[in-house]
Amino acid sequence: MKKLILLFIILTTASQFTMAQRYLTKNGHIKFYSDGSLEKIEAHNNQVNAALDTKTGGFVFKVLMKSFVFEKALMQEHFNENYVESDKFPNATFAGKVTNLQDINFDKPGSYEATVAGKLTIHGVTKDITAQGSFDVKEDHVQGKSVFMIKLADYDISIPGAVTGKIAEEIEITVDTKLESLK
């Protein structure tokens, strides 16, 4: 996390912004959904750390993998022990920037389409990703949402043959964060 904080500071260029331009949450929500041919699986995580700098567009989030909750306890166990190996790789992180910052007015309430690009690290593997989403600017907070797909194989997450069909090769990730101004 300390490296992530340093990266966030570099991305946000400390001299140019005030504390009021930083928004963060420690309880953002991420859902992942697997639409397998034999089974639909989803898991929810309400312990997402996310931070946004509205001056520079810097956006980071960090997720504790053990905080993903599945309907089935056995699937949660397999997820942690076999697929993402959460003891070895306890967190997933994203560090990037809003690339169309000029289209978003964080001082005016409204809904704005956003494109975010950066580096996503899961299971110890880092990949460049670009995702579409939106920022819903309110009087006292910013709601950030995005839905994007990832391939498990890209992050060296291998699914045993016995459960092929139960878990899709591509997973849908939904990010939903209520970011409040850092006072």
Partner: peptide
């Protein structure tokens, strides 16, 4: 205990 995310320890 879900772990430590670099800033906080999380208990759920």
């Amino acid at each position: 205990c879900s772990g430590y995310n670099g800033t906080d320890v999380i208990l759920e």
